[in-house]
Design a protein around this nucleic acid. Sequence first.
DNA 1: TATATTACTTGCATAACACAAGCAAAATTA
DNA 2: TAATTTTGCTTGTGTTATGCAAGTAATATA
Lengths: 144, 144
Amino acid sequence: METKFRCNCPFTSALDILGDKWMLVIVKQILMENKQTFKDFTESDEGIATNILTTKLKQLEAFGIITKTKLPNNNKSNIYLLTEKGLAMTPIIVELGIWSDNHLRDFNPTIVNKGGIELLRRDKAEFTRVIEQQYREKLATTKN
Amino acid sequence: METKFRCNCPFTSALDILGDKWMLVIVKQILMENKQTFKDFTESDEGIATNILTTKLKQLEAFGIITKTKLPNNNKSNIYLLTEKGLAMTPIIVELGIWSDNHLRDFNPTIVNKGGIELLRRDKAEFTRVIEQQYREKLATTKN
DNA sequence: TATATTACTTGCATAACACAAGCAAAATTA
DNA sequence: TAATTTTGCTTGTGTTATGCAAGTAATATA
């Protein structure tokens, strides 16, 4: 699974990895929708196919964005968690949400107002901080 | 060219439009690399194929992210410029650059340090402001 | 022990993208 | 003003990415 980078531009290089239909969506689901098992992802609103999910989870793991572990008491379910590198993608996702909130409702009027979108509008830095902190707390109670 | 949105999530809806290999790259080229004609894009480091470029420029125009015009003295070259909706994508691109700068050099050691990356590291809000202002100045001297 | 669940894999169809070539209109050059 | 070049595309063909349905092995549950 070697990734070919198109050029030496940092912006384009990020998109060589994240610029597809699923990578950022999966990270969002882990970060903001409490999803962590294979089954969780397959049951999401986005409806990813299982073969694509397998491929994308492997890619995310290969790039160090998520880790794949098992809980000590459960030998069956794999648990996918964000690494620090994955958590560092929060601002990207936040900015996508802001742009969507401001400019995409004409094209998709069904976009919902929930998940603390008022805070996102009022103070995006605080929104980002809260999301990251909540995930760190989840990590602390999950891993140990 | 109707876009099917996967669900009613604002983050996912943004990626229904921007989540591919080229949309954000083209916006970056317009915003930060002074590219504006069809030929400019074909000559870029990323090396987009002309048929893909045609498709993506049409999509960006359909979503109101860019406009297609001609200069008054030139009846041949089309000029592609960012709209306000397109300019509003600057923070997304900035965050992609920050993440890339911090976490992608292990995978692509050729990533360059230029284009004011020191400012990007020191003060991303200021970096964003400068980029947007420079583009607005370009717009002012181009359109009229 | 039988059944269900989870995390996949496999096969096949379609959509996105890549590469090469060609082409018409405008601009430039001779 | 005729010939050439440039620009902005289109077309044809192949490959990669994604979608959908089905199947499977290992584990968990009844």
